[in-house]
């Protein structure tokens, strides 16, 4: 009798084991969804809404695989570079035409209906209608131009590989090299850990350059002399976050700065002295909260502004231009 009971119990246990296996195989959860070692930037990305002074008013969807750069001319035409081409939108945000390129442009600037493109280590010049005018001699073979700006006398190209600003005249003659590391002149040089090296020309025709590794923006004279700089490293909104920021910036007509920081994916507005004025936008939506394997590389690939002071951000993740206007 006792033996029968033991056998019965054993067999019930055996059935139990089989049921456990069955249940785990067909109904089991693969693993729990909590991550004990999670790296979370959400708290830092949360921004007090009173600090946000811009509204996103329009988005323009782009039909490109990759988007690299954006600029706006004095007639409010928008130029977007990416995918071996440049797409041009007029001020009604309608695509007017496309310029096919031999290879992809990393950056572009427009002045007086002439397009200046940074392609690899050289500059190419097109008319705004797409006629190729010239290809300038490259500074050296290893160069890589990440940003370009132009005014009526100069073309400045930021070369991330050479860690210097190349100053050309409008005909492509190299005038001088700005900011190159030089111990004799006690120039520390730019610290550029990744291929982000931006510059801009202010309304007063002053050259401003981002030095991301030092978390600062520097003002140079035409001759390449240091004039002034500002910026501190901080995860707080007052400074620039992470190892190397800001990676993109543009300047408004009143001399204030619009900066974008990778990592925290935020666009901020600083006044002429560099003091934080307010936040333009912080990309902290539900999508960003999800695990994001595209986090390597920045979300915004370029910033631009029009004459009305609207801010245009080229969202590389969603392949959109997001337009922000002051509240």
């Amino acid at each position: 009798m006792k033996q029968k009971l033991v056998i019965a119990l054993s067999l019930i246990l055996l059935i139990g084991v089989i049921f456990l296996i069955y249940n785990d195989l067909f109904n089991g959860n693969p693993a729990d969804s909590t991550n004990a070692t999670e790296y979370n930037l959400e708290k830092l990305k949360q921004i007090d809404s009173s600090l946000i002074c811009y509204n996103e008013v329009i988005t323009i969807d782009l039909t490109m695989e990759s988007v690299n750069a954006l600029t706006i001319d004095s007639n409010s035409n928008i130029y977007v570079a990416g995918d071996n081409e440049i797409q041009i939108f007029d001020k009604t945000l309608q695509k007017t035409h496309t310029i096919k390129l031999d290879s992809s442009a990393n950056c572009l600037a427009v002045f007086d209906n002439t397009l200046y493109l940074g392609v690899g280590n050289y500059v190419e010049v097109y008319t705004s209608k797409g006629v190729k005018l010239s290809r300038w001699k490259s500074f050296n073979s290893k160069g890589y131009i990440t940003s370009i700006a132009v005014n009526k006398t100069n073309v400045y190209a930021a070369d991330a590989e050479n860690k210097a600003i190349l100053r050309y005249n409008l005909n492509g003659v190299l005038l001088n090299v700005i900011g190159k590391k030089d111990k004799d002149k006690s120039i520390d040089g730019f610290i550029i850990p990744s291929m982000y090296f931006d510059l801009a020309i202010s309304a007063e025709n002053e050259l401003w350059v981002a030095n991301p590794g030092k978390h600062e923006l520097i003002n140079f004279t035409e001759k390449g002399d240091f004039r002034t700089s500002w910026g501190i490293a901080s995860m707080q909104t007052t400074g620039f976050a992470g190892c190397c920021n800001p990676i993109h910036f543009c300047m408004l007509s009143n001399g204030s700065f619009v900066t974008f920081e990778k990592g925290l994916d935020r666009i901020k507005l600083h006044d002429q002295t560099g003091k934080l004025e307010c936040i333009v936008a912080s990309f902290s939506d539900a999508n960003a909260q999800a695990l994001d394997n595209c986090s390597i590389g920045a979300r915004v690939h370029d910033l631009a502004t029009d004459l009305q002071g609207n801010i245009y951000a080229l969202d590389a993740k969603d392949k959109k231009i997001r337009v922000f206007s002051r509240k």
Binding site: P30, S33, N35, N287, A290, L291, D292, N293, C294
Partner: peptide, 14 residues
């Protein structure tokens, strides 16, 4: 209601 890591990852991969 609750999204598992699998779903949120899939959504972020595009």
């Amino acid at each position: 209601s609750s999204l598992s890591m699998e779903i949120s990852t899939f959504k972020s991969m595009g």
